[in-house]
């Protein structure tokens, strides 16, 4: 009966059961559901390094194939997948001295950054760049919480499960992260305003 149901309509837990029986089609559906999400997550968390994000995505799903028994069916698959990915990133941070490399890279790129100033409000691209810079200056826990909430669109409960902490802790982390980011971006807005005043002939 279950075989006649299209794989795409099956739940993650059911697909994982099929994957435990080495069902290739079940894995294909799971990868189609979460492949992009995971790749984007790794790309953002690992200093926008595409090669590293590629390797980590492959390693993550290889773990899913090799050890489907590690998945607890009582938990949502999505949060389990994120928790595995989160631990992989933590290991990578520990391996590479975490933030120093990212800071160096960002400072080097920041020095050559051009300022496409728009009249009246902050340009979207510029906002994105400054946000990325501000996020990279955050500590790992806050940054992960922020990425899971605002990039991966996980709920508070899912983030709590993925990061193995309480919902209250997630809420608190999110709020203070937003506050810190706001402070940094407001500073940037002030600097940007001064630049605009100083260079009125900017196209």
């Amino acid at each position: 009966m279950a075989d006649r149901i299209p794989y795409s309509t099956l739940s993650d837990a059911r697909l994982m059961q099929a994957l435990a029986q080495q069902d290739q089609k079940a894995f294909a559906v799971l990868y189609d559901r979460y492949g992009k999400l995971m790749y984007t997550y790794f790309h953002k968390m690992l200093w926008k390094d595409k090669e590293r994000a590629r390797d980590f995505t492959q390693d993550l799903f290889a773990k899913v194939i090799r050890r489907p028994d590690l998945y607890d069916p009582s938990r949502p698959f999505k949060t389990w997948l994120y928790s595995v990915a989160h631990n992989m990133c933590k290991n990578e941070y520990a391996k590479h001295g975490v933030r120093q490399i990212a800071h160096q890279e960002l400072r080097s790129t920041g020095s050559t950054m051009t300022l496409p100033v728009a009249q009246g409000e902050m340009d979207r691209e510029l906002f994105r760049q400054k946000l990325t810079e501000a996020l990279d200056e955050l500590d790992e826990v806050k940054r992960t919480t922020f990425e899971l909430r605002f990039t991966q669109e996980l709920s508070i409960l899912e983030i709590a499960e993925a990061m193995e902490c309480s919902e209250g802790t997630v809420k608190s982390r999110l709020f203070y992260t937003l506050k810190e980011l706001n402070r940094k971006l407001r500073m940037f807005e002030g600097i940007l305003g001064i630049i605009i005043l100083l260079i009125p002939q900017w196209p």
Partner: peptide, 22 residues
């Protein structure tokens, strides 16, 4: 920004390599 940015497309080789594991 998140909505406009969208998700990144992973390399198709990842999928091929993973399927080859079966």
């Amino acid at each position: 920004d998140r909505d406009s940015g969208g998700l990144l497309e992973p390399d198709p080789a990842i999928r091929r390599n993973l399927m080859a594991m079966f």
